[in-house]
Nucleic acid binder design. Structure first.
Length: 209
DNA sequence: GTATGGATGTTCT
DNA sequence: GAACATCCATACT
């Protein structure tokens, strides 16, 4: 609860319009690196810079949408730019941004953020005191950003949505690509994207280059 | 610093 | 009953 903010934001961050989002899941996963995720809650604004994503595209056996639409994954089949939030491993919420056209399942898992605004609130929610530990990993990201089932299906591009995507607060650096984390199926595919050199990325440091 | 295993609840077989 | 897009505590180097 005592880490100083490493980043100062000057001026307002504009909301991304749906027309700016690539329709293709893999392109969207790459596009979102460096962009801002914002959640306006009663206590204030929580925001962070997206530094790590994973794509779960059409035809991917590891994607929740692979076997068709169910009550759990229906948000993956919405127009691109909607939130798909699911519960896993008995304790963790994870957030995706839906991709592809309506009725077609695809999503981008948000795996790590560099905290920007509301850092003290996030540290309190997570019970940690280092910015590096706030949102490194998808479950931690959702916990820090106060995201759970109640955000599932929200339109991130709607004018007044409390949960939304913003422009880059700082341009993304070079983007690295690796295999995705924690999968058994389709484990060889290179669908994890991250900002090279960012200490806020999850996983082994040797992947940072 | 890295490695390992248990907890936990929902979904699907 | 098994799998699971994970996290945390604990043990060890």
């Amino acid at each position: 609860m005592s880490s100083p903010s490493p980043i100062k934001i000057n001026g307002r961050i504009g909301r991304l319009r749906r027309s700016e989002l690539p329709e293709d899941t893999i392109e969207l996963a790459r596009y979102l690196i460096g962009k801002t995720l914002v959640h306006d809650i009663p206590d204030g604004r929580l925001s962070g810079r997206i530094v790590e994503t994973e794509a779960y595209p059409i035809g991917d056996a590891a994607a929740h949408s692979f076997r068709g639409e169910t009550p759990r994954n229906k948000s993956m089949f919405l127009k691109r730019g909607h939130a798909y939030v699911y519960f896993t491993y008995g304790s963790c919420w994870c957030m995706n941004v839906s991709a592809e056209t309506p009725g077609v399942g695809g999503g981008v898992l948000l795996r790590a953020l560099e905290p920007l605004e509301g850092i003290e609130l996030m540290e309190k929610r997570r019970g940690v005191s280092r910015a590096l530990d706030i949102a490194r990993g998808p479950g931690r990201l959702a916990a820090a950003m106060s995201i759970d089932r109640s955000q599932d299906g929200l339109d991130l591009c709607a004018r007044a949505s409390p949960l939304w995507l913003g422009a880059s607060a700082r341009p993304a650096g070079p983007i690295g690509v690796t295999t995705r984390i924690g999968l058994s199926r389709e484990a060889h595919r290179l669908l994890r994207f991250y900002e090279k050199g960012s200490p806020f990325v999850s996983g082994p440091r040797r992947l940072l280059e």
